[in-house]
Amino acid sequence: MHREKVPACVHPETYKYFLDRDAVISTWQRLAARWGEPRHNPSFRTMEIAAPRFTLRATVLGNPITVLRRRECTAADVAELHALLGYGE
């Protein structure tokens, strides 16, 4: 997997995480187990999990996942997220 920085967003460190195709379902299962089931927006065909320190949003295909950090988000929060996503620098 890899990530790409997204410009002009709510936080300067906003990224889209591109999951490996065979990891999409299991990744969302891990995220849901940690922060709750995703909420769907049928009008825009999107889904999201609103975690305390960031919002995880994707199209209904689940990939890529845009991670919108809140200002309070810490390095430890990001490290936990990366572990769940299976992302390494």
Partner: peptide, 17 residues
Amino acid sequence: GMNTFRGIMHSPEWDGL
């Protein structure tokens, strides 16, 4: 116009609909 819509065009909402 540039910043707002650049953000919008990179959003999952844009990708989805």
